[in-house]
């Protein structure tokens, strides 16, 4: 399984062609309506003070999403950012802050970040969630931060993200734990001490 990454950590990652030239930095991640996969990235320029670019990077132009760079074949893969975000919203606007609910209507918490799989798939595999007190009881004043796998299907209705079936039956404390959960390896059961 490819490395899992928090979408927030993608911001400022360089976009590099296979020819070795950096063309931009990632500004934000754009995903599809059900928060199931990445559809692209909005970009900022390379300089320290350069603002957002008019061009965006659609996922179809991505060669590989790596730990240290987003690789693309060449600069021609960039498209107008307006096309990219025409119907989709960036993660920050749409998914982050949404309430996570199970199908039964139990509140899990609110989305802090989206976890995506690196490599060529661009799948959204889970969410970093500020767990509600009822979902993860604990003595922490700030509530618990847990990683919840997305499961096979999830629907975004307004500001509510509804996870199907057993998706929220197990949660993980960290990204390696989520990797194990998503890959189907037992371990890191719900509520294990951090």
């Amino acid at each position: 399984m490819n490395e899992l990454m928090a979408a927030r950590s993608l911001t400022t990652r360089p976009v590099v062609t296979l020819g070795g030239d950096a063309v931009a930095h990632v500004k934000d991640t754009v995903c599809d309506a059900g928060a199931s996969r990445i559809t692209g990235f909005t970009l900022t320029g390379r300089g320290l003070l350069s603002g957002p670019l008019k061009e965006g990077l659609p996922w179809s132009s991505v060669y590989a999403l790596g730990h240290d760079a987003v690789m693309i074949r060449d600069r021609r893969g960039l498209v107008s950012a307006a096309v990219l975000t025409e119907r989709r919203q960036s993660l920050r606007a749409e998914v982050i802050g949404a309430r996570v609910l199970t199908e039964a209507g139990d509140e899990v918490g609110t989305v802090l970040d989206v976890v995506v799989e690196g490599g060529t798939g661009g799948r959204v595999v889970g969410f970093r969630v500020a767990a509600s007190r009822r979902f993860v009881p604990g003595q922490s004043r700030h509530g618990r931060r847990v990683y919840v796998p997305r499961g096979v299907s999830a629907t975004l209705a307004g500001r509510d993200l509804v996870l199907a079936g057993e998706a929220a039956a197990h949660v993980a404390d960290d990204l390696p734990g989520l990797t194990a959960l998503v890959a189907g390896v037992p371990g890191h059961p719900k509520g294990s001490p951090p």
């Binding site: 360089p14 590099v16 062609t17 296979l18 020819g19 070795g20 030239d21 950096a22 760079a69 690789m71």
Partner: peptide, 10 residues
């Protein structure tokens, strides 16, 4: 070796 640019050797 795939490419050599201003950012890296790929």
């Amino acid at each position: 070796l795939l490419g050599l640019g201003d950012h890296a050797l790929v």
